[in-house]
Amino acid sequence: MYKDGAIFSFTVIYTPTEKFAPLAPYIIAIVDDGTSHYLVRIEEFDKTNLVRIGQAVVFSHLDADEKPVYKLA
């Protein structure tokens, strides 16, 4: 269901809801997998070198709520 793709856009969230507070700052991105666009969280990134639009990303895993987490290719 979740395919590898490229970052269409992204942001780094510094002010999260309570549930995501332990993760902050964290990155969300719109992934373009060639057919569709959807929102994912990006983990395992280098905090000193932000991701950029067009960068390749791969599906990593589903989190505890079964939401998609990706990482840089």
């Binding site: 856009s9 999260p16 995501f20 929102l39 639009i53 939401k67």
Partner: peptide
Amino acid sequence: VGATFPSLFALAAN
């Protein structure tokens, strides 16, 4: 997934 309201428009900005 972790989106907040400002983050939706931050995606638009980038």
